[in-house]
Design a protein around this nucleic acid. Structure first.
Lengths: 104, 104
DNA sequence: GAATAATACTTCGTGATACGATGTATTGCG
DNA sequence: CGCAATACATCGTATCACGAAGTATTATTC
């Protein structure tokens, strides 16, 4: 998919991937991949961004000799998902405009 | 709407606004405004970009003492719109993932 | 008739951000 | 032993939407 079209969706995809249970970077990518392609560098940038804006919390845990970072969604993150849901009607209206082209 | 979410949509909105009949900057903004907010600087950047990628052609015409630039969609522009239409199923799948969170 | 809004287009700098490239380090498999 | 998979991180780059500011004419309002 077009890079530009992904913007604004990737963040919520990551939030959606951790909304039921905490997860970690590598797993998030794999869970999201069937829906949207996302490189590792992109994901870790997004995770840091979401952490800074308090959409998720992080804890490190050792797993098989290596540190693994588990990300857990916060209330603010859940709110963001809800907000996205309501933004969707706008998106749909735009889509209708684009394919039909009826002017208001 | 969130700026990032607009990316990738604005271009097709502009194309949609000129897909039936040629139009000019100021009019395009007004036609698109009910659906999506777009500043003038953004529009003219987009128009130039779409021209460079041959999605539209431009001609200048005098109108009331001033030059007015008329933009007309090309075959490539129409193809872009069709492409967007088919991209939409991907977008919808992502949306389903985000709101339902069912993992494949 | 002077001021203001609307029309119409342009340029510049900035901030946000997705990505490829690259690096580090361990485990597991053939 | 070599290679893929796992797991995380950093850096530089290109794209792009926007606000701000500018230029210039016509229409409207007080």
């Amino acid at each position: 998919m077009d890079i530009q079209l992904k913007r604004g969706i990737l963040d919520v995809c990551v939030l959606a991937a951790i909304k039921d249970e905490e997860s970690y970077g590598y797993k998030i990518i794999k869970d999201v991949k069937p829906y949207i392609e996302m490189s590792e560098s992109t994901l870790y940038t997004i995770l840091k961004r979401l952490e800074l804006s308090n959409m998720l919390t992080v804890r490190s845990e050792e797993h098989g000799g290596r540190l693994r970072k588990y990300y857990k969604i916060t209330k603010a993150g859940l709110n963001r998902l809800a907000e996205f849901k309501s933004e969707w009607s706008e998106i749909m209206a735009i889509y209708q405009f684009v394919i039909r082209g009826d002017k208001r």
